[in-house]
Write a protein that binds this DNA or RNA. Structure first.
Lengths: 122, 122
DNA sequence: TATACATATGAACAATTGTTCATATGTTGG
DNA sequence: CCAACATATGAACAATTGTTCATATGTATA
């Protein structure tokens, strides 16, 4: 069923399972969706941001509190919160001089949970 | 209820909500777990690896097939597969010269799904 | 066993990223 | 309006990362 030895210009080896490649190609989501998905996970892929998200799972916190909790500078926390904000993972409200951050939706907890399940089952 | 203005040596601002910080500190998972979680998501945080995982959701594929599908070099695919292997996200079986890769468990699909839900709801 | 082919891997390089430092912005209280 | 403070942000720098290139490893077959 597989057509072997079709030379593909884009790849330095032979196309071994043409049918499979064509089948999967037809099933792949749009390039843009895959890019956005990777961008989302990239946000989760940093220890500081993971800690911030984890903390916000427990309570709404201001920037200073997070910095104190994680024993890190206010500046770095603020930079990371901006990234989390852009990814719509956290939201904020201002109360005077203080800005309070909290999780933007429940998906964050779900994604966390799936990650932990994977880690614990191995 | 909150003790304000306790100067914290680790943070260049005041500790605004001492109670909150202490409460959350008590709830935080072990440092190592958070590190591993971030490492896991880091693996998902690259377009090439996302595409590979997405492809393997549909079918078992060999390295050449994946390279042809994604229009990328055999070498880069192989490098990325090693990372996916180390994260226990894919497994492989050898059949002669050809090495076939497939998803290692169902969690991958679950994590994918949660990511897509987050992206689609905004 | 010699050749061809599929895959793996090390080194090098460009690109991206997280933190720090300095400073700007925004808000409150005197 | 000014001083103090919480937060935000731009530039710079070190560290990490993904790809390429060259080459090594492993397997089948002529």
């Amino acid at each position: 069923m597989n057509s072997e030895n079709d030379r593909d210009a884009s790849c330095d080896c032979n196309l071994i399972h043409k049918d499979t490649v064509e089948y999967v190609a037809g099933k792949m989501p749009a390039e843009e969706d895959l890019y956005n998905l990777a961008e989302l996970f990239k946000v989760f892929g940093d220890t500081t941001r993971i800690k911030i998200l984890c903390a916000l799972t427990e309570a709404e916190m201001c920037v200073c509190d997070i910095a104190a909790l994680l024993n890190m500078s206010q500046s770095s926390i603020s930079h990371q919160l901006r990234i989390l904000k852009q990814a719509r993972l956290v939201r904020y409200r201002r109360d005077g001089k203080v800005v309070y951050y909290s999780l933007d939706d429940e998906h964050v907890k779900q994604i966390f949970g799936q990650g932990l399940i994977h880690l614990n089952e191995k």
